[in-house]
Amino acid sequence: MNAPSESAAEAWAELVTAALLGTDRRPVPDLPAGALADMVADGVHTDPADRMLAAVAAMAVARRSAFVPLPPAASLQPPEPDPRPIIPAVAAATWREIVAEWPVLEDEWTLAVVHGGWQLAADVLVATLARHRTDPVRLARVGRAAGPLAAWVAAHEPALAATGRRAVPPGAVEALPDLPVPPELAELLAVDAHTFVGALVPRVEVATPSLKPVFVNLLARCRPEVLADTAAALATQPFGLALALADLCRLRSRMLDELRPR
């Protein structure tokens, strides 16, 4: 027999050591005197392995039940305060939809947050940090939208920190990236809704699916004022491309509404 352990922690450590080697090579340690030791002793365990199992079970239950907190810890130094309001919950949900369905809108969405005087919500911030940590321009845009919190989170969670130190070209953060639009469609970027719909819908009707990126780029960069009418017109068309583009129009329109400056 071993001398009984002084504390539960020591007793558990001894049990782990004995279990590691096995009772064929190491005697079963005695538990500290008390209720646990009595309970284990009450069982009729002639076999050391059975006695070991009983002791392990009793200690495991006691350790989990006697669940006590660790000592209080110092809080982190908080980030600089950001007076901007956090984006509405619906805007955060729209961001997820954009990322899943129409990522072409994400840059404009982030700029709309900045221009609307909003601050990124925590869940969107973490997702965007993870998403753009290798893209210095988009990461800088996220930093602008999230304020001091972005750098603070990245400092504490290295998995979200930027990779590399590539420079951000001047003006790149504020500008929307160019999307290729053919000249015959580019002239629609500045027209009114009636003209836009009249010119676009017949083209979509005869378009092949391979032309979808062209129309997507156009609808991602056209004037927001034309989106509602365009969505309504496309939604009446009985083919998939038109319906998909109508969905894009509605989503872009909604995103801009949700992030309208306060």
Partner: peptide
């Protein structure tokens, strides 16, 4: 204190939401 387990994303979002 209580030790935190779980994935980075959940913990980071908690951290960002709390802001300390």
């Amino acid at each position: 204190s209580l030790a935190l387990a779980g994935e980075v994303d959940g913990r980071a979002t908690l951290l960002a939401a709390s802001a300390g």
